[in-house]
Design a protein around this nucleic acid. Structure first.
Lengths: 130, 130
DNA sequence: ATAACTATTGACATTTTGTCTATAGACAAT
DNA sequence: ATTGTCTATAGACAAAATGTCAATAGTTAT
């Protein structure tokens, strides 16, 4: 990936058969909210731990992903009454979100196994002729 | 992934900045050819080890991926003079293909690490409240 | 003739991702 | 008042991996 930390998995019909395809970004956001409720710009910063570069990620795609999650009922939102500065919209995962996230984690785990299978075959051949 | 063994990673601008994006299918095919030269229908069968279901994968997308690899100079092809049955077009990885595959493997490895990071955070929160 | 095997290509469609454009408010510092 | 930081968004355009479906046609063996 010459682009670096951008672009996890991309699109395609195979990626999501239903309306709630396992977008990597949405999965990352749900995991962060699984950890605790949060708001847009904070979530964007926290994506750092999953390889995203906060300085380079476009905030509009974060909100787009959050909007998608909300429309799917996987998160619910409310205005934070306690913030001192600019208004903050808090996002919180729903029980449905938790259930879907659990399924997504399984799928991602399967993705990982498939990568490992590929690596295994590749390394096996590569190391066979040192 | 409700679709099961289909659809590895999908598309998107971030997936490939250049013309040779790291398609999972192309990577799988290159690994198989890294192992030894082969032909279309055999490759399709061999994809089984990476989670693809041979009964369900459409052969046209195999040839499309192979065509892409050939156009990128990552494989070269020649008619097999020895086959008894139908004509076979043998595909063989080029040195350039080897170099690109090596880079793709690194990228896929990075993908795996990112999934692991996600799993780590998810499990940490999940197991914290048993 | 039928089946298995083999070689292809292209059109249509879907979906995640990225870039860019645009708007606007709440506070704090100058 | 101006500027900066922080915060909330939405939408249009574009790219690209993936899947479905349709189509063609040859080589063997049964």
């Amino acid at each position: 990936m010459p682009g670096g930390p951008h672009g996890r998995f991309g699109a395609g019909r195979g990626m999501g058969r239903g309306p709630a395809g396992p977008m990597f970004l949405q999965a990352c956001l749900l995991v962060l909210l699984h950890k605790g409720k949060s708001y847009g710009y904070s979530l964007a910063q926290d994506l750092k731990q999953f390889g995203f570069d906060p300085a380079r990620i476009d905030i509009s795609i974060i909100y787009r992903a959050l909007r998608g999650l909300e429309m799917q009922g996987l998160v619910e939102t409310a205005w934070d009454e306690n913030s001192l500065g600019p208004q903050r919209r808090m996002y919180e995962i729903t029980p449905q979100g938790e259930a879907v996230l659990s399924a997504w984690m399984q799928n991602l785990h399967q993705r990982k196994l498939e990568i490992e299978a590929l690596e295994s075959v590749y390394d096996e051949v590569t190391n066979r002729h040192p």
